[in-house]
Design a protein around this nucleic acid. Structure first.
Lengths: 147, 147
DNA sequence: CATTTTTCGTTGCGAATGCAACGATGTCAA
DNA sequence: TTGACATCGTTGCATTCGCAACGAAAAATG
């Protein structure tokens, strides 16, 4: 007969839980963005990072979002083609790109944010008092890039 | 001049945070699994679900893990080819599959679990007292399939 | 300086992904 | 019973993905 399996509580296993929840949250949102504005999640992240952080290069975004640089690069190219941002070479370091939202891109972000905020509000309402504890835990998990 | 952007705190935005953390956790783990045992995350999930839950059909796993059924189906096929599980037709409902780990599959799970548990322990150590609050929040987010 | 090493962004490529469509089976109602 | 409808798992297909390799540029080394 085979030996018994080790004890293991799949329902508390954090990598698994995070993956499942992240997929659910993102899929829901992605549907809204794609349907209404024709952009993907990767593109959404690039737009919002340009609008709400100091990230200006592909590398800045890559680091900040833990997104593969090829994924960032392709998202940026699509957004450029759509006229939502411009690429320029950084004069101080000619390897870097300086990404900048266009008027059109800024306008798009203005439209996207209320959708995002509404979803956030919905989640926080559902979580009630659990929000601070959750955010504190997420802070901790984000702390080291290399867990 | 363009109107200002709405207020928005990207660093607290839950779908975004979950996606980033989930990617980090999974990527780290996936490297270990692939390197040591040649299996993907999708395959890992199928194996562990068969070992530690009552899921026996593709659909059970699909529901439990929020994984596309085609993804489950392909993971199952690869695992079958590798000899880790068997497919049988459910006699009560001939549309369903009854998936079952082989000896070899059970052995593999026995090897995988300590790795997974070590990672969980590491995360919990890092989170200290924040674990219960986090798990409670995750419970809440998992509650409704359709958030 | 010259040379080696590192960094940035892009691209090629094979693998994985999600979606829709499909055949087979089961369910339900007329 | 029969026909319409729903469900399960697979597969085809276009898209996306991650990784490695690359050229260009900068930094480090000597």
């Amino acid at each position: 007969m085979s030996r018994p399996l080790p004890e293991f509580d799949l329902d508390r296993y954090l990598p698994y839980r995070f993956a499942v929840i992240a997929t659910r949250l993102s899929t829901e949102l992605a549907a809204q963005y794609r349907e209404k504005y024709g952009i993907s999640i990767a593109e959404w992240r690039v737009l919002v990072n340009l609008a709400y952080s100091d990230s200006t290069s592909v590398r800045d975004i890559e680091k900040r979002v833990s997104m593969e640089k090829s994924k960032v690069s392709r998202a940026v190219s699509r957004l450029e083609d759509a006229g939502y941002l411009t690429k320029a070479i950084d004069d101080n370091d000619r390897r870097l790109l300086q990404l900048e939202l266009t008027e059109s891109g800024t306008g798009l972000v203005r439209d996207l944010i209320p959708l995002a905020q509404a979803y956030q509000d919905e989640l926080e309402a559902k979580l009630h008092a659990k929000v601070p504890g959750l955010q504190a835990a997420l802070d901790e998990l984000m702390k080291d890039t290399d867990i």
